[in-house]
């Protein structure tokens, strides 16, 4: 194995996991930006997406593209329902910010245990999507499923960017995030946009989870570590800043891959998270100096 092919393989690996962190970080930021809340069940939306996708693709035998679309729809609906009927009702009863965080943490456990009951406590295999084996990219062997993850994550990130900036609904979401009262006064349904924001976040996480299924298998805690690092990436980029989340996610993907390849595997996470502390110590609002919602 040559040095060049090793580096290419590492770069592709870093891009794959980094783009997953980036999309997950974007979904964290989206919720925070639009509602000022933090969702600790985001990693579990990823996990549920993987189980739902497995059900469509393997159990029901549907086409892979259709399975992705249906997974997005189901996860969107779940995110929407959680926001409209759980989070909103708690907020209407005067629940504080910390109470909502606690609620999403409880939701995370409920989703994990629920998935074990509905599907399985075991790791379930997700069938290979492609018939071909590893493909050769400049001498580096890469599984096509890994490239699919990269494609889905990049597609999700670009799609979200275009949706927020180029559509009426996206503009309404941004307006609601900036000033709810003003947005309401010009006829924007703020509650609906909040629900859609949660739905989009859950949908994105879900399709990424489904794409990860063939690579990692599907199990109830598969989203936990990914969500933790994606959150760190989002905070590093500037919590609430969509672009910052992308940069932060990719940064963590590259950091952990190259640190474990060339420095240490034992202290990889310690070094990676030490970087988070250093960056926040220098720039408490992240790389993109995002204004923190009080």
């Amino acid at each position: 194995m040559t040095t060049e092919s090793t580096i290419i393989r590492l770069v592709i690996g870093a891009l794959m996991i980094g783009s997953v962190y980036a999309v997950m970080g974007m979904s964290y930021s989206l919720i925070y930006k639009a509602t000022g809340l933090m969702n600790l069940a985001q990693g579990d939306f990823l996990m549920l997406g993987a189980f739902v996708g497995l059900t469509f693709y393997k159990t029901l035998g549907l086409n892979i593209v259709l399975s992705f679309i249906l997974t997005f729809i189901v996860m969107f609906a779940l995110g929407y329902v959680v926001q409209r009927y759980l989070i909103t009702s708690l907020l209407n009863k005067g629940a504080s910010f910390s109470f909502i965080i606690l609620c999403t943490s409880a939701l995370s456990l409920a989703f994990q245990n629920g998935s074990q009951i509905i599907w399985s406590p075991y790791t379930l295999p997700f069938p290979a999507i492609f018939d071909t084996g590893a493909v050769d990219i400049f001498g580096a062997k890469v599984a096509p499923e890994n490239l699919l993850v990269l494609f889905i994550a990049a597609f999700g990130a670009i799609g979200l960017f275009l949706f927020i900036n180029k559509t009426k609904l996206g503009t309404a979401m941004r307006a609601s995030a900036l000033d709810q009262t003003a947005a309401s006064s010009v006829g924007i349904n703020v509650q609906l946009t909040k629900g859609i924001t949660w739905g989009l976040s859950a949908g994105l996480a879900g399709v990424v989870g489904m794409a990860l299924g063939p690579v990692y298998g599907v199990y109830s805690t598969m989203g936990a570590m990914i969500a933790q690092k994606a959150f760190a990436g989002a905070v590093t980029g500037g919590y609430g800043n969509i672009y910052g989340a992308v940069i932060g996610g990719l940064f963590y993907g590259f950091m952990e891959t190259f640190v474990s390849a060339y420095l240490t595997t034992t202290y990889k996470d310690a070094i990676t998270f030490a970087m988070l502390i250093i960056i926040l110590a220098i720039s408490p609002t992240g790389l993109f100096k995002e204004k923190v919602i009080e």
Partner: peptide, 20 residues
């Protein structure tokens, strides 16, 4: 002599380190 963290999902760096 490569150590990996439990509950990890992506082992690209670990594998590269070992194979090298």
């Amino acid at each position: 002599d490569v150590i990996y963290q439990s509950a990890e999902t992506d082992y690209t760096g670990v594998i590269s380190n070992a194979l090298s």
